[in-house]
Amino acid sequence: MTALTTPERTAPAMPAGVRGRPARRRREAIDVVTGLTFLAPKLIFFGLFVAVPFIYTFVLVFQRGDVLMGFHWVGLDNIVAVASDTLFRQTLLNTFFFMVVYLPLSLIVPLGVGRLFASTLRGVRIYRALIYMPSLLSIVAVGLIWRLMLDPDSGPINIALRALGIDTFNPFADGTTAMIAIALITVWGGLGFGGIIYMAGLNDIPGELLESARIDGAGAWRIFWHVQLPLLRPLIQFLAIINTIGAVQVFDIIFVLTKGGPGTSTSTAMWYIYTIAFNGGSVGYAAAMSVVLLLITATLSVIYIRLTRTSDR
């Protein structure tokens, strides 16, 4: 009599997707570690030179003193002092005047340059190189160039004016003309960057849209106003935001050209903060003004973003 044998039970085969999960997770973990390894130098640099100083600025707001003599806590005294500082309010007004002159020009003039860059004009590559060249220079170099150009005694512009029988022109002798000149020089320094941005936007517009407008009888001005300009709106918003931030923080061109003079007529908020922090004033008081300027910049940015979103809707 033969014994009955039962077949051996085998474990059910695992789906291929389940078998591959541990290996996939290991690969994902390796990818994360590799990515963090490559990011580590930049994260360390950001933490040491951006995040830590930014946070420490808010600590300095409640302190007085300097690096050599040490700091001591004063509570809200710095904030109260900033609120009653008439010179700080004057520098804010000077900064606002600079913005009023600079911002429209920094958006309109590069737009014309961008149209030139995007054109098929003969020799346009040479024009691009010549106009973009100032953007390769630092703003300090730009300021030094124009200070030499406008020098009342030896500047080539005034030499040419005197040769024509015209009186010497010194825009930095008067506060209003000095601020206007600073705004114009700043626009000149960033002309190539804005022109390249606009050129990229113009070249990205489909040719079919322009051709359809021409077929419908639209001239060059109507095509620009009703077709090209609306499509350039995101770029205009981008340039407006970064130029607004740059205008609020204008400092280096002031340092090179006028050092806040004549008097305090070209002293901007950032220039005043610099003089308080490094010319015998209180670092904590300068930090308090920096925080106020940060809040003003953030408020302007939020208002502008909200207005542009409303317009888009």
Rank of each mutant, 00 (worst) to 15 (best):
T5S: 12
R9V: 08
A11F: 05
G20T: 13
R24F: 12
E28L: 14
E28R: 15
I30N: 13
V32T: 15
V32W: 14
V32A: 13
F54K: 08
V59T: 11
F62G: 07
L68G: 00
W73S: 11
A81M: 10
V82A: 14
L93R: 13
I108F: 13
P110Q: 07
G112H: 06
G112W: 00
V113G: 02
R115W: 12
S119G: 06
G123R: 08
V124T: 09
R125H: 06
Y132P: 04
L137H: 01
L137G: 07
V140R: 08
I157W: 02
I157H: 02
L161I: 05
L164E: 04
G175L: 08
T177Y: 08
A178Q: 02
I182H: 11
I197V: 15
L202I: 12
D204Q: 11
G207W: 03
A213W: 03
I215G: 11
G217D: 07
W225Y: 13
L231T: 04
I236Y: 09
A240I: 00
A240K: 02
T244K: 00
I245T: 09
I245P: 07
I253K: 01
I254E: 03
K259T: 11
G260F: 08
S267K: 09
S267G: 02
S267H: 14
A277D: 02
S282V: 02
M289C: 11
S290G: 15
S290K: 00
V291M: 01
L294G: 14
L295R: 01
I296Y: 06
I296W: 08
A298M: 13
S301F: 06
Y304F: 15
R309G: 01
